[in-house]
């Protein structure tokens, strides 16, 4: 229930006045889209993620479409962040983490033995919950990725282009040499997005990117996401259902099953066009969650 009441960018006055299912529906935009994903970027078949012996995510099969925003929603501990981190092999950094099943990117198995995780992460960027700017200047934050990847580019132009795309340029163009820590939280998160797109990825994974931001900063990031979706494929994990309703084309609802030993295992309950998930969910658990009866 508490998740519905998280601070949120006001889209309209009715949004602020009401809670529960009605305002989520009010946030829905756009036309109905097909249940089947065309232009597949990620193709998951029976994906399971383990930490040691613990199965954190069970048996996920889904497809993620190009230039779409796909939202992962669900209660805490349902494995949505864990699944997201397996898309660019960030879970490799956690000792004991492993993935079973097939997680394919444009038809290529991301977990094939000959795959270089560094190459994966260059194409599939990630934005985290806390804005993790480097203790460097604003300029150096954006330039870090292109530098470590040995990109031969005009760095000044690239920095300007990425900061402009991240809707930050006008605010920082006179302070590029200043420490990134001088920026506000919302500006830092946009800087992180600029840093992410500087290495020219195809996909941007976002793990609760607005969780530490106020409603105004959140609204800016959401606008930015919609703008970026023209060129990038975006997968976002969010605790905020209104955010999922506002920005995403498709929504996947995850929940946690509790097994006989009381251990929670995440699983995908339902996946489909966001409008349909929020207005006519097939599964009663989805219905309960989005209407605020559970979670």
């Amino acid at each position: 229930m508490s998740e519905i009441h998280e601070p949120d960018a006001p889209q309209s006055t009715s949004d602020m006045a009401m809670t529960g299912r009605m305002d989520v529906s009010a946030a829905l935009e756009g036309v109905d889209i097909s249940e089947t994903v065309s232009n597949i970027v990620f193709d998951l078949a029976n994906v399971r993620v383990f930490y040691g012996d613990f199965e954190a995510v069970r048996d996920v099969t889904m497809q993620i479409g190009r230039n779409e925003i796909t939202a992962f929603i669900g209660p805490s501990g349902c494995g949505k962040s864990t699944l997201l981190r397996s898309f660019n092999r960030m879970n490799d950094l956690i000792p004991g983490a492993r993935v079973e099943g097939l997680l394919a990117y444009h038809g290529f198995d991301i977990y094939a033995p000959d795959v270089d995780p560094i190459e994966v992460r260059r194409r599939i960027g990630m934005v985290f919950q806390k804005p993790n700017v480097f203790p460097k200047s604003i300029y150096e934050n954006v330039a870090y990725g292109p530098k470590v990847n040995g990109m031969k580019v005009n760095m000044d132009d690239l920095v300007e282009e990425c900061l402009t795309r991240a809707a930050l340029w006008d605010e920082v163009k006179d302070d590029l040499k200043k420490s990134a820590y001088a920026l506000s939280g919302g500006q830092q998160q946009r800087l992180v997005i600029a840093r992410c797109i500087a290495v020219k990825p195809e996909v941007i994974l976002m793990d609760e990117p607005c969780a530490s931001l106020d409603p105004i900063a959140t609204a800016k990031i959401e606008d930015l996401m919609k703008e970026l979706a023209k060129d990038y494929t975006i997968v976002i994990v969010t605790h905020n259902m209104q955010q999922a309703a506002r920005v995403s084309e498709r929504t996947a609802f995850f929940t946690a099953d509790v097994d006989a030993n009381g251990v929670r295992h995440g699983r995908l309950v339902e996946y489909g066009p966001t409008r349909r998930i929020f207005t006519a969910p097939h599964d009663p658990r989805t219905e309960d969650y989005i209407s605020g009866r559970f979670g």
């Binding site: 960030m90 950094l93 992460r121 985290f128 480097f134 870090y144 990847n149 840093r195």
Partner: peptide, 27 residues
């Protein structure tokens, strides 16, 4: 140094060496 900084570097396609020498040591 917060783990988030290392994650940020790795997520940009940095190697372990680039993460250690260009992010962790300066931080």
């Amino acid at each position: 140094v917060p783990a988030g900084l290392r994650d940020g570097a790795y997520a940009l396609g940095a190697t372990k060496r680039q993460t250690a020498l260009r992010v962790v040591v300066p931080a």
